[in-house]
């Protein structure tokens, strides 16, 4: 278990505190997505129903700000950041290559694969930055943006939380399954928060059968919503997205995973440098990797930095600190 966690938290560290913040923010965020189903209004406090969506639209960006601040507070080194920026740009650049029906699908495919390789924390942040950068490039900033950002962040994070041990064909199958699920889930969530806005909720003179009724039983609203989403988007957009996800992961998945893993290996994320003594004699004797040690080092395995460090015999030589903490905190003593 600790091996798996170590591997997934490699690029953007996800400590217990970050995980806690992330969990609460996700809970609050989820509430803001599914509020139409949760609203229970007393007849006399009817005015709170209509206000809720606007309050939530204002609060959701704040939630995202806090989570992102927490994730980068734990320390994000230049490598992770450059990777983040460049992959966000790739997501934006690959959009025109999509099937042409709906723009967003290719973003998900790379998001899922990157989340899988670089871990949950990175997936979460990549989901946010990809959508944000893409919105800036297309001048598409609006109240929908925080919702898009948060749901794609969840998609990236979820991909990072999938079981690590699965490899090979099973891994691709798992990712394809995940891709299909998130394609529909994304459409569902995005429809849900916007549903009352588009069909009209708070207007008392109208009682359409697919529109939202504040305070109605959950199941009733859910059924109305299901019909709405089925009629408007499930057949077209969501299924299109699911098909693109499936096809892209099946065809490109293995190669892209290999490419990303190679990049992770080359960037040696999480591998801390080691130092020997200045004296030539001790340098020879403390030299850790020759012969039998070499294969161990070639493998960029989880917890490997620890292995190397432990083998660098003398503890007093570890000026750079213990391998598990983020880099930033290691140097605080010096700065």
């Amino acid at each position: 278990m600790s091996r798996a966690r170590g591997g997934s938290g490699r690029v953007v560290r996800l400590g217990p505190r970050s995980a806690l913040v992330l969990a609460f923010a996700s809970l609050a965020g989820l509430m803001m997505f599914v509020w139409p189903l949760l609203v229970r209004v007393e007849p006399q406090s009817m005015q709170h129903g209509p206000d809720a969506p606007f309050v939530f639209v204002a609060i959701l960006p704040v939630l995202i700000l806090i989570v992102l601040a927490e994730l980068s507070e734990g320390g994000m080194d230049a490598k992770a950041l450059a990777l983040l920026g460049v992959l966000s740009a790739v997501n934006a650049a690959l959009r025109p290559l999509g099937a042409g029906v709906a723009g967003i699908e290719t973003v998900f495919f790379l998001l899922v694969l990157a989340g899988r390789v670089f871990g949950a924390g990175f997936g979460f942040v990549l989901g946010c930055t990809s959508l944000f950068a893409s919105a800036l490039l297309t001048a598409g900033v609006g109240p929908w943006l925080p919702f898009q950002m948060l749901s794609s962040a969840w998609i990236g994070m979820g991909a990072g939380l999938l079981p690590r041990r699965v490899t090979g064909k099973a891994e691709i199958a798992m990712l394809v399954g995940y891709g299909i699920v998130v394609a529909y889930l994304f459409g569902f969530l995005m429809n849900l928060w916007f549903w009352p806005f588009i069909t009209g909720a708070e207007v008392d003179y109208h009682d359409g059968h697919i529109s939202y009724v504040p305070g109605a039983p959950v199941l009733d609203n859910l059924r109305r919503f299901a019909v709405f989403t089925l009629l408007t988007s499930t057949a077209g957009w969501d299924t299109g997205r699911a098909i693109t996800n499936t096809a892209a992961i099946l065809v490109l998945g293995p190669a892209v995973l290999a490419t990303l893993r190679r990049a992770a290996r080359r960037a040696s994320h999480g591998l801390l440098p080691t130092f020997g003594d200045a004296g030539p004699a001790s340098a020879r004797s403390a030299r850790p990797r020759r012969g039998a040690d070499a294969p161990t080092c070639a493998r960029t395995g989880n917890g490997m930095a620890r292995t190397v460090n432990d083998r660098t015999a003398n503890a007093r030589q570890h000026e750079v600190g213990q391998p598990i903490r983020g880099q930033r905190s290691n140097y605080q003593g010096d700065s």
Binding site: L65, L68, A69, S72, E73, M76, L81, A82, L84, G85, V86, S88, A89, V90, A92, A93, L94, P96, L97, V125, C128, T129, S130, F132, A133, L136, L137
Partner: peptide, 25 residues
């Protein structure tokens, strides 16, 4: 805001790399 300095930099990087990648495509 300063707390989002890293994220802001990542997006700045994305915006400046994007045209280069579009070219590369």
């Amino acid at each position: 805001p300063p707390a989002l300095y890293e994220m802001g930099t990542a997006v700045v990087v994305a915006l400046s790399v994007f045209p280069q990648l579009a070219e590369s495509v």
